[in-house]
Write a protein that binds this DNA or RNA. Sequence first.
DNA 1: CTTGATAATCTCAACGTTGAGATAAAAGCA
DNA 2: TGCTTTTATCTCAACGTTGAGATTATCAAG
Lengths: 168, 168
Amino acid sequence: MSDVVDAIIGQWTKERPDVVEDLWPVELFARIQRLARVIDKSAKAAAAAHGVEHGEFDVLTTLQRSGPPYALTAGAFLKASMVTSGAITNRIDRMEAKGLVERVREGDDRRTVRIRLTEHGHEVTRAAFADHLANYAQLLADVDRDLVEKTAEGLRQVLETLGDTPVK
Amino acid sequence: MSDVVDAIIGQWTKERPDVVEDLWPVELFARIQRLARVIDKSAKAAAAAHGVEHGEFDVLTTLQRSGPPYALTAGAFLKASMVTSGAITNRIDRMEAKGLVERVREGDDRRTVRIRLTEHGHEVTRAAFADHLANYAQLLADVDRDLVEKTAEGLRQVLETLGDTPVK
DNA sequence: CTTGATAATCTCAACGTTGAGATAAAAGCA
DNA sequence: TGCTTTTATCTCAACGTTGAGATTATCAAG
């Protein structure tokens, strides 16, 4: 059996035999990117069914899994989300308009803004997250469970080596 | 050792113990998405050094590895690139303005447009691709080579099972 | 031939992100 | 207290993609 990436590497091997030795990272990275696209599209559709954008869903779940009081600063999202500050501001703006979250300025530091999940936001998150997990499960329905675990473990080691560690 | 995804799953386990059983796909997918972001950013920077966007670089390499006569139809890019038709048109527009490719209307079907790599496009592609591979190699410099191969193999099986096969 | 359906590409407004800069508050230091 | 630096968030124009629809060409019947 072979996949799209095998085909791509086969083409390079024919057209550019001089770079074949340097193609091994492509075996990993191209597949990661390809799978990311597939997952993204699917997750986007699952979130859209609940009226939220992909990035907004990310904010919702980050808030919910953070536990009580379900409020984080804008800066916390910046570190967690891998997007720029402008994107966070826009997301919060939209989500506030939808009544999913609310900005709360309280505490000693008046520069910080806490983003708090509303009751409505909680409900939407619960429903959307359930669909999200169901969607994930369906994507992997025909994949051997042991293979998933072993591959995930391999990716974790790559992430660690690349320095993608939590809460720096 | 633990990575960002371990931390995320740990949070879910505490806050939503009722969904722990359904979290296993996250172990794989979250890492794929996280790595995809890292790779994307790095690849984007490498391409930008040669004055081309990420998507444009994709068109360039697709053309070069297709071999002589280094020309493909717009439709071929659609199937290969996982983006929409509008994106392809825009990419070609920009690349034509830069002198990287040229639109050629020839052959029996006058609806089709062949996108052909120019001499300048060839040069840029060679240089950018060399940097791209060097960048990839550096990202994986501290990762065990055997781990890369095994993980890539796991991802291939997932892709195959998901039906991402070449040239349908 | 003509009609209808299919196929290939392009158009364009809406959308979310980027990234540099602005604003404002807090902290460090003299 | 004043002054500078740092930190947190927001602003906004530019950018690339999306996705539905328009355009033009080919194919299949009748």
